[in-house]
């Protein structure tokens, strides 16, 4: 049986923090959804780390070119959630 996966902004924010090795209290607030990853300080390696985390945590596969296509957390969430990523 397969289950549709939904990754929330809160999940993504936690994984963004984790992959940057951040302490508590740092600023990932505000309009994070529509801020570009580069403005948030996530270069392609950091973004690949986040995607790796999502894949492992949810047991899903995200194509590599998602890094190039998804310029903002909002776009990445849309891509992950709309891709019909499933786990079995």
């Amino acid at each position: 049986m397969t289950t549709q996966i939904t990754v929330t902004l809160a999940d993504l924010t936690r994984m963004l923090r984790e992959s940057a090795g951040e302490e508590e209290g740092v600023d990932l607030d505000g309009d994070v959804l529509n801020t570009t990853f580069i403005d948030l300080g996530y270069d392609s390696l950091a973004l690949l780390q986040v995607i790796g985390l999502i894949q492992r945590e949810y047991g899903i596969t995200i194509p590599d070119d998602a890094v190039a296509d998804a310029e903002t957390p909002g776009a990445l969430l849309a891509l992950v959630n709309a891709s019909g990523a499933t786990t079995d």
């Binding site: 951040e22 740092v26 600023d27 580069i38 403005d39 300080g41 996530y42 950091a46």
Partner: peptide, 13 residues
């Protein structure tokens, strides 16, 4: 710039 933006001093503005 990306390294700096992940730095605490820049995160805290």
């Amino acid at each position: 710039t990306a390294f700096a933006r992940r730095h605490r001093a820049v995160r805290l503005r």
